[in-house]
Each structure stands twice: as C-alpha cells, then as structure tokens.
Write a protein that binds this DNA or RNA. Sequence first.
RNA 1: GCUCCGAUAGUGUAGCAGGCCAAUCAUUCUGGCCUUUCAAGCCAGUGACCCGGGUUCAAAUCCCGGUCGGAGCACCA
Length: 582
Amino acid sequence: MNRIAPELISELKVKKEPDKGLPELDINGKLVMRFAPNPNGPATLGSSRGMVVNSEYTKKYNGKFIIRFDDTDPVTKRPMLEAYDWYIEDCEWLGAKPDEVVIASDRMEKYYEIARELIEKHAAYVCFCTQGAFKELKDAKKACPHREQGAAKNLMFWDKMLAGDFNEQEAVLRIKTDIAHKDPAIRDWGAFRIIKTPHPRKEVGDKYCVWPLLDFEGAVEDHLLGVTHIIRGKDLMDSESRQKYIYNYLGWTYPKTLHWGRVKLDAGLLDDNDEKENFKVIDGLKYGVPKLYVRPDKETLSTYEKEGRGYPVAVGYTKKGNIRFKKASQEYPMEELDSKNGYIMVSKKLIENIGKFSTSGLKKAIADGTYSGWDDPCVPTLRALKRRGILPEALRKFMIDLGLSETDISLSLDTLYAENRKIIDPIANRYFFVWEPVVMTIEGKENAVARAPVHPMRGGVREIPVGNTVLVCRNDADKLSTGDKLRLKDLYNIEITGTSPLTAKFIGTGMELVKKEKARIIHWAPPDGVKVRVLSPDGEYEGVGEHGILGEQGKVVQFERFGFVRIDSVGEDGIVAYFTHK
RNA sequence: GCUCCGAUAGUGUAGCAGGCCAAUCAUUCUGGCCUUUCAAGCCAGUGACCCGGGUUCAAAUCCCGGUCGGAGCACCA
C-alpha cells in the first residue's frame, strides 16, 4: 500500500486526527460575538461558559467580543447595580476582556425608532387584549381585534404608550408574525410592555415607561452591533424564528446561531471524610449543590471501616434518576439502594430539585442569611470560585472542553478541580493544619526542630520548633491505641503510651520504622500555632496551623492530608482560608 | 394540547458526508509502583454507541417508529 498509493495513507492520517477544542465556525468576514447577561446578580459558573466560549472564538478568529447587558426589566429581573462592574471584572479575570460594553437601558431611543418603523410597515400593532384573552385567541389561531387597526391608529396609540397615557398591563406592542403558525410560540409575540417602576440605574431612572422584551431588544441589538454569530441556550431556540420576522421586515441578515443545552451541577462540593453519625439530608438542595448523606448497610459499613475509607457519600443523581456516589464508578437506581442495600433515600421530588439554582433563589438565601454573600464558598458564583482559589485557566479549559453540544448536561466539578489541581499542585506550598486538634504529650525529647519541605519537588525547608507537646487531628487520635508506633511527619517517631489523655514517648528519628515496619505517618501542629478557620462548601473546619501560613495571604497552599485552600485573610484572631478542593 | 431540540462508559467529550471504531480523550473509580501527605507522578484495569425495525456487502454514523430527557407557547431573561 505504501508503495502503490502513498497519498492514500496520508489521507487516512488526516481523517483520523481528532478535533481539538471548539468546532470551527463558518465565517464570512469579521467575526463578531456577544455575551449578553442580565445583571440581576453576579456571574455564575453557567455565565462563565458564555464568557469563555464567545471570547475564545473571537480570539481564535481575531474577531470582536462584546458584552451586552440585557437589563430591560426593572421589575421581575431587576438589575443589581454592582453586578455590571462585577461582570466586567469577572470577564477580565477569565481572560475574556470585552472589546465593547453595551448597556441596553442606554439605548432605548434606538428601540423606539425601530418600533416606529415596524408600525409604519404594518409589521407591529398596539394590542389592548388582556393576557388571558390574547392567549385564547392565539391558541385558536385567531387574530385579535387590534391586529388590523391600521398604521395611523397604531402610531397614535404607540405615542400615547410612550407618553405614559396607559397603565401597566393596558397595552402592549406586538410583532405581526403568522397568527396561524403551527408553533404557538411564534404567533404575534409581544415586543414592548409598560412598566412604571423606575430602572435602578440612575442614568435611566424613570425616563422610560415602555420597555422592550428580550426578543425585540436582542434582535435589534444583534443587528446594530453587527453580531455575526450567536450562541445561546436551547431554551431560546424559538427566538430565532420569532426574531427573523423583524429581520425580514427590515431587510436585515440574521446571524448564524448555535445552541447549547441546559447545564446543571451534578457533583458534590463536598468531602467524603465526614463522619456523619446517621444518614441525613442536609441543606444544599435549594441552591443546587447536592449534599446527601447515606448510611450504608452493616456489611458495607464494616468493609469500609476496615479499609478506613469512610462513608460513601451520594453526590448527585443522573438523568436516569439514579444516585451517584463519590467513591464509586457506577450509579445505582434509587429503588435498589432503598430495598436491597438498606440505604435510606430522600424523596424523588427533593432529588429532582438538585441542580437547579437560580439567581433569584440565591438572592433570597443570601438575604435570609443562609449564605454570607455572593462569594460564600457554597455558592456557584465566579466570585466565590475565585475566592476559593480556582484559577481562570482551569475554568477556561473546563468550559472549552465541554464544547458546544445541544445535549443537556450535568456538570461534574471533579473535572474542574482536577484541571485546577494540575496548575496549583506544582506551585502551592505545603503546611500542616490540624483540625479538631487534640493535645499529645511526648516524653523523652524536650526540644526539636522539624525541617519539613515547603514543597515535595521544589525543595525549600520550613522549620517548626517543637517542645514536648504537639497537636494532632481528633480523627487520627481516635484510631490510636497504646503501643502503636508511628511517625510525626518530618519530625520523629513515637510510641503511644496512653490514650486519655493522649501521651507518647520518643523512640527515634530514623525512617526505618516507616520503611520496614510500615508505620503510619501523621501530621501535627505546634500547640502555639496560629488559629485557622477553613470555610468550605461542606461546612467550617477549625483548627491550628503552623506559623508559616501567616505569610501566604492571597495564595493557594496545600494543607497536607487535608486539601488545597486559599488563604483569604490573616487577622488578629487567626487565619481564614477558603477550601479549594482535595 | 401544540411546537422544537437532544440521546456514546459514573460524568463530560471525539467520531456521526457509512467501512480506518471489538469506538477517542479527560475525569471518576479499582489495583500496583513511587513517595516522610490519604497530594502529585508513573503503570495497569473496570466501564458506553437508548430501544425496535429498515436501507446496505457494511450503520454509533442514513431512514422510519417508539422510549426517555430538556425546552418554548410570559406584559422574565
């Protein structure tokens, strides 16, 4: 083959080459894309997909990336003033700095102009039907009495609307489509409605009482901004059909569209080391981070205990309604777990609510104190992820790898964490942090100085002076019994001489104990260390860490045998760290 | 009720102008090596084309029917 047709071989190789990254775009001229959030709250994990993918494309094709605030609803999705800047900050943080920033509420006059033009072209009319009445007509494919009232009349009504002569709910401007369209979603949709609540932005305030709906505002803006490609959620699929009516009336060219499916959070922002006495369902359901603790049957439990593995933790459910466990590579149907294995399950309804979190839901939970704010470690906002030490590069890669499929997906944050860990692990300094500390008194060695590596690969030494007591984790202490020999990491070997109180004696410094006798190694902290609080999605850990942590403010470090954390603040009463991931 | 989308391992993806596919990559999980962290690294392993028909020499890829999942039919975005 090589001899007869070498060109065929190279052809084969080309075809086998897998597509890396995002699919190619069909481009004609300069690429212009936009990310169009409603600033009614800060950017979330979901928003980052739009930021990253749109900006990635415009970078790749040397195009233009626009952020546009679709803030034309002063009531139901009332914009939050701080969020405008937050969005832009988050974009920059993510390496998605916009080339242009557009605020819809600044551009109302343009929308009015176009509306007028459409009315003149008999393409829009002022409708006075109540919502219910119109729906009935629409469902029956029947035109409402206002549909053919004539351009002159419509123009007059429109001016009265703008002048504030009508009350809310009294009139609405509709785009004429096809009242008998087979898809009811397309029939004569609303373009403007009356809202007399002032807009929160003071530049706008009570200047307008007629506000465009999304399909109108978006349609006009995409044209005005010269957007060539739109990526939007599948929930907005009908928008294209609706908006095309405007484009046709006005002779505009509709951008190319791509859609992606719904995203929900699947994996746990939680730790499986927890020792929950009993099965419990604790909070987290209402904001989309599943936290289900299940108690295994006796047999499984003893196996797990023997292996020192801790409890299996249910971290989510799948499309099929099955339960997925942290320590498993499979999922199980609920019924099976319930009956056969003695698991106790939560109601299906509760489970169905997992993974759906909304900006308004978060807002409420923050207001009532469930979370400390928009950067609470429990909350899936970009601000919170940033504070926890998730790096933008990791998030970018994660989002790009998701691609552009129209499939609805359940995100597993494990993948994001793995991505982040790859970046962080080589640079994060290591420290001891002892949570739920227990004092251990050691005899036979008055003073010593531990020389521990700052990083296992990079070298560097941290020195920790030790007297005759150290602190160890309750978790480790509970597993010790008199006579056990073990090593305090980077310090020396000890033998337990009593468990309450915990006492030990010095038995040497050599590594033979570990190498030959396979003794366990545990970490520890000096009793006069610094107080450390770790805030994690799974709750709070309090303990003591070594002094070196004081110099790491703002950095991500690894607490050995605990996980990565970002040192958030160093204050009078100790250190506050945010949990990144294992 | 009407309309529109989707379906590849636990999760996310590649392949989908039919043969390179006993199906890619990543992550998870399991086992081993290494290691003064239960981290990282290295090696190995488990694990998937929703179902049923059809077209074809040949189907994950095309067609039809079903099932399941999601969405829209707002004076929300």
